Amino acid sequence: MNKAFVKETEQENDDPQEALIPKGLKNYMTLQGYQVLRKELEHLVKVERPDVVSVVAWAASNGDRSENGDYLYGKKRLREIDRRIRFLTKRLEIAEVINPATQPNKDQVFFGATVIYENQDGEEVRVTIVGIDEADPLNGKISWISPVAKALLKAREGDSVHLMTPAGKQELIVLEIIYPDE
């Protein structure tokens, strides 16, 4: 099939998460987050990509490639893997690993802190401020550039901070700040 009829693009910056890092800043992350990305990159380069390349080579040797599902799917998967490898490589190049345990001001909220706060409904919420690539809001890990993290940064236990939401201004009361031990 002619490439003019295919809607796939191979743009360099087509990963939506790539735009999340503010211009000129490092990709702050914890050591655990760095290791997870590094492990994924290593797996893609050493295991997954070679496996797909061998399937594509085998499928190409079977002759007609225009209706060869293994070949077509393999090439598409190879593009996805290469795109992810480029993305991970870029992210790791600009990564700045932060060890929250070495934070000198443990009485304030900074990167890597786990914060227990009370929202205006009286519910206690526990969040850990982590890197963009480590964020998992459903499991209490929020990005350091998220609105909640920005509102909590530099707050101390007992402080009341304001968070602007689509529903209006909310007040959060910092109950506890926890940093990991070394």
Score class of each variant (00 low, 15 high):
residue 70 D to Q: 13
residue 130 V to D: 04
residue 149 A to M: 03
residue 99 N to W: 11
residue 56 V to N: 04
residue 2 N to F: 12
residue 92 L to M: 08
residue 86 R to H: 14
residue 2 N to P: 15
residue 114 T to N: 05
residue 42 E to R: 10
residue 40 E to L: 05
residue 66 S to F: 06
residue 60 A to N: 08
residue 110 F to D: 10
residue 91 R to D: 02
residue 143 S to V: 00
residue 19 A to M: 10
residue 117 Y to I: 04
residue 164 M to G: 04
residue 134 E to R: 11
residue 103 Q to T: 15
residue 63 G to Y: 04
residue 182 E to P: 03
residue 144 W to P: 00
residue 41 L to Y: 06
residue 95 A to I: 01
residue 109 V to M: 04
residue 130 V to L: 08
residue 175 L to G: 06
residue 119 N to Q: 08
residue 33 G to H: 02
residue 21 I to P: 04
residue 23 K to W: 01
residue 18 E to S: 14
residue 109 V to A: 03
residue 32 Q to L: 02
residue 182 E to R: 10
residue 116 I to M: 08
residue 42 E to H: 11
residue 96 E to H: 14
residue 143 S to G: 03
residue 134 E to T: 04
residue 151 A to T: 01
residue 9 T to G: 12
residue 77 R to A: 12
residue 134 E to C: 06
residue 29 M to C: 12
residue 134 E to A: 06
residue 3 K to C: 13
residue 22 P to T: 00
residue 171 E to H: 03
residue 109 V to H: 07
residue 103 Q to A: 10
residue 13 N to T: 11
residue 65 R to I: 12
residue 146 S to N: 03
residue 11 Q to F: 14
residue 169 K to G: 00
residue 109 V to Y: 04
residue 40 E to G: 02
residue 125 V to E: 04
residue 125 V to M: 08
residue 78 L to T: 03
residue 94 I to V: 14
residue 176 E to W: 06
residue 32 Q to W: 00
residue 107 D to V: 03
residue 93 E to G: 13
residue 71 Y to V: 07
residue 126 R to T: 15
residue 146 S to K: 02
residue 54 S to G: 01
residue 131 G to I: 04
residue 16 P to Y: 11
residue 60 A to H: 09
residue 55 V to E: 11
residue 162 H to C: 02
residue 32 Q to R: 09
residue 58 W to F: 12
residue 69 G to A: 13
residue 92 L to P: 11
residue 49 R to K: 15
residue 32 Q to V: 02
residue 118 E to K: 15
residue 115 V to H: 07
residue 63 G to I: 02
residue 124 E to G: 01
residue 53 V to Y: 10
residue 84 R to M: 09
residue 173 I to T: 15
residue 131 G to C: 06
residue 164 M to P: 01
residue 72 L to C: 03
residue 61 S to H: 09
residue 84 R to A: 08
residue 180 P to H: 03
residue 78 L to Q: 10
residue 138 L to R: 09
residue 179 Y to F: 07
residue 124 E to P: 02
residue 26 K to V: 00
residue 73 Y to D: 09
residue 163 L to K: 10
residue 178 I to K: 13
